[in-house]
Design a binder for these strands. Sequence first.
DNA 1: CTGAAAGCGCTAACAA
DNA 2: TTGTTAGCGCTTTCAG
Lengths: 326, 326
Amino acid sequence: MATIADVARAAGVHRSTVSRILRDPKAFRGETRTRVLEAAARLDYRPSRIAQALSGGASPLVPLVVPDISNPFFARVARGAEEIARAAGLHIVVCSTGGDVEAEVAYLQAMSDLDTPCILFTPSADTVAAQVLSIARHTAVVLIDRSLPETDLRCVRVDHVQAAAAGTQHLLTRGHRRVVCVSGPMSASSARERVAGYQTVMDEAGLPAQVVEGDFTIAGGRHAAAQLFVGGEPPTAVLAANDLCAVGLLTAAREAGLRVPDDVAVLGFDDLDVAQHVNPSLTTLRQPSAELGGQAARLALADAGFGDGSDVVLTLQAELIVRESA
Amino acid sequence: MATIADVARAAGVHRSTVSRILRDPKAFRGETRTRVLEAAARLDYRPSRIAQALSGGASPLVPLVVPDISNPFFARVARGAEEIARAAGLHIVVCSTGGDVEAEVAYLQAMSDLDTPCILFTPSADTVAAQVLSIARHTAVVLIDRSLPETDLRCVRVDHVQAAAAGTQHLLTRGHRRVVCVSGPMSASSARERVAGYQTVMDEAGLPAQVVEGDFTIAGGRHAAAQLFVGGEPPTAVLAANDLCAVGLLTAAREAGLRVPDDVAVLGFDDLDVAQHVNPSLTTLRQPSAELGGQAARLALADAGFGDGSDVVLTLQAELIVRESA
DNA sequence: CTGAAAGCGCTAACAA
DNA sequence: TTGTTAGCGCTTTCAG
């Protein structure tokens, strides 16, 4: 691996000259410029980002730490963030932690230690708060989709309360009275907020609320249904934690011999691609996932001195997409 | 951000002492050890990985560069790789390029410039070969699932030819004669190999082969079907590029008023979670995706001096999972 | 067990 | 336009 010294030697100039010319070739004219450029090309020279970073610059990496990249929701968040990062000459790298809190902290730590300009983060549970706070003292941290209580970290998110309320309202309008909420893990603020929205609407309607704690996966939804679809009075509608959960519920309903939406309606969250392709297609609350990632990236980058973050929108709205399932 | 000098000052010792003690505390006893450890803790000192990397070490990051992280197949590959990397004290970071060749090269370059010990890579097209080769001179590159022609880069992959042949054979055994292959983009070696397997079996059976080039997405599958399900003699079975493509085909079939599998059978590839939850559930060729990632990581890490790679398996087998769709 | 000194590859004043 | 000199934060000989 050729270093700047090799290029300097080959071109017969000083290292600093090479650095300058390579850094901004247009600012030079003489034939030194040509010699340096040629030597660099010939030796296939690439400046070490490590050395650059050590000497003043920062890492070109913007980590996005998420609980589960196999949930396409996060893939879209990543996509949105990427677009913004690319414009600033930076690269999004996705770190998936599998919901393991230790792995989560380890990733955050590792990235912070690499002097990344900022970190985009969706916590899987509140328990990381203290550690994240300590990391945030060194590196700008922006949360996506889930806030961290006892913390003043900024968070770009969807108004989950409002969204869940709208979803619940939709189910009631369709005449449902026994509406159950299969929530995500209550350790996630997004799950708690959605439950709150659901509960408010049920209360206002004078209906009993029932919450089953599940998780954000297909298997979780299917498993939750085991408790739901067997009793004497199964619900006529379910507000699912997200689309993956909803897909699991769909399968469980079919296995239990229930027709969707006639016997039981299912309402998802996210609007993944798959939502319109399952059978029946999924009625869902669309989250503007790419924009979530984009706004978060803009905020974080602004903090790190890249661009302006004054017009970042912190709270986005979900949109009800009505299809067949509810 | 406290540096090693701060700690040294606080503990009243030399920087090198701090370095040594922090690097391997068990090897020391005296009360200097205590002072240093305490000072480090008190100052919340974290060694800069950048500086460590510059001074001999390598980056703790193992990039996994894939075309599309919203395809859960790659999420599973990542998961498999992660397990191996973690054991070596390294972190997998996922770089999703959206199939954009330029972004792909940019990512590879950026990671290589960061002195990562190795790179795990699934190329989206053959056109990157030359550039990848140049990067591979600096950083160990291991390909996953798709090889790069004109290149001696090692590749951990599934035997796509064999797998596609087995799938096609399954369809023929079920009595199908008009079997069409909706392939992935022919710029991907995996797609070409699957087509080859399909073609061989069709040829041997004396049946006409028909290949429609699609891509690896739901939308791609649906779009391909537009050409397929309208003509006078639609196929009675389709070998899909992958499960996402198959899901798109399922939707298209339903829209065209065709029943699956009675009017048209659909055979997928990958066995994503969603495969067993769509309706009808998907018959598919399961790829051992996590193991693909794991073996690739082992090979790459061995190259970089972490662990042993002598028993790495380069070619894995797919498994036919029969469900409802074919 | 500890200190001194050199060096990883690069950038950034400061002079010339 | 170019060279000189420091220095980023850490590890690692080599002495003591």
